[in-house]
Simulated assay, not measured.
Amino acid sequence: MSAVEIRTEIDNLLDKVQDQDESFLKVVYSMLSTYVQEQKDPILGYETDGTPVTASAFLAQADEAMAAVERGEYITLEQLEKESEEWLKPTK
């Protein structure tokens, strides 16, 4: 089935859905709306809590990270190594 045929069939099927069945139409609308939004701003990955990371959010985070580096807000590898040595020391 071609894309045009599929669109036509979807239109025909939606026409058969009773107007009273608003909950079904809301589900279809939500699915289509989510799909279209993801095409505009695709999901690149997920945070550890399951929150999606979109391309626009990722680019904003990358821009902020670059700006922080330009402001001198970073630590050197040597500083990180020294700091990480503290992580392995037992606490009393």
Rank of each mutant, 00 (worst) to 15 (best):
I43L: 06
T54Y: 02
T51A: 11
T54R: 01
E73Y: 04
Q79K: 08
G50I: 02
Y46K: 01
G45P: 00
Q39W: 05
T34H: 11
I75G: 01
G45T: 06
D63V: 13
L77E: 12
E83T: 11
F58H: 03
S84M: 14
S33V: 05
G72N: 07
E38L: 15
I75T: 14
Q79E: 15
S33Q: 11
E38H: 13
L59E: 14
L77P: 03
A57K: 05
D49K: 02
K82S: 12
V69Q: 11
A65Q: 05
S84Y: 13
G72A: 04
E78G: 05
A57V: 07
Q39N: 13
E47W: 07
Y46Q: 01
P52L: 02
Y74N: 02
L77Q: 12
L77H: 10
E38R: 15
V53W: 00
E70S: 14
Q39V: 06
Q39Y: 08
A60F: 08
K82H: 11
A60C: 08
Y74T: 03
Q37A: 15
A68Y: 05
G72H: 06
G45K: 05
T48A: 10
G50D: 05
L80C: 11
T51G: 01
Y74G: 02
D63A: 15
V69W: 07
Q61R: 15
A67K: 09
V53K: 03
E64P: 00
G50K: 01
G45H: 03
T51C: 04
P52Q: 06
E78S: 11
A57E: 09
K40E: 14
